[in-house]
């Protein structure tokens, strides 16, 4: 069976950013800059794949919040994917970011949730 996303979704780009290593005070500005460049070019639906991030601090959280606010103000969103590191998961839960962000097990799943948000709600 072939399933196609709604036509409206095909015209709106979705970007996946997959940082590697430490997302901290030193590197978080680079993530912020990348998100800002995407939003400036009209991409307001962003997946941040945390699968290869092994350490994140409060500056990393700040970069996520800035991206979230900017995209949501443009009717977009930031979804997080695959926070596999226990330390990354801990900081997300301690700050309750797991309740603020939609967190998918994989980047593909996060993209699917952008493309078919209603189907996901029905499946809950």
């Amino acid at each position: 069976m072939l399933t196609l996303p709604p036509a409206e979704d095909r015209s709106v780009p979705i970007a996946i950013i997959a940082p590697v290593g430490r997302l901290d005070a030193l590197t978080a500005p680079a993530l912020h800059d990348r998100c800002w460049e995407l939003q400036r070019s009209g991409t307001n639906r962003i997946v941040i794949d945390l699968g290869a991030v092994d350490f994140m601090d409060s500056a990393g959280l700040a970069a996520l919040v800035r991206a979230l606010r900017a995209t949501r103000s443009a009717e977009g969103d930031v979804k997080l994917a695959s926070p596999t590191s226990s330390s990354v998961w801990r900081i997300l839960t301690l700050t309750r970011f797991d309740r603020v962000f939609d967190i998918a097990p994989t980047a593909d799943e996060a993209v699917d949730r952008f493309l078919a948000p209603n189907a996901r709600r029905a499946g809950r």
Binding site: D57, S58, L61, A62, L64, V65, R66, L68, I91, L94, T95, R96, F97, V100
Partner: peptide, 18 residues
């Protein structure tokens, strides 16, 4: 305030929580 995400203020909160 953990009911809303913030850009600042988590550093020492995390230290105390950890």
């Amino acid at each position: 305030d953990l009911t809303q995400p913030h850009e600042h203020g988590y550093g020492l909160y995390l230290v105390n929580a950890l």
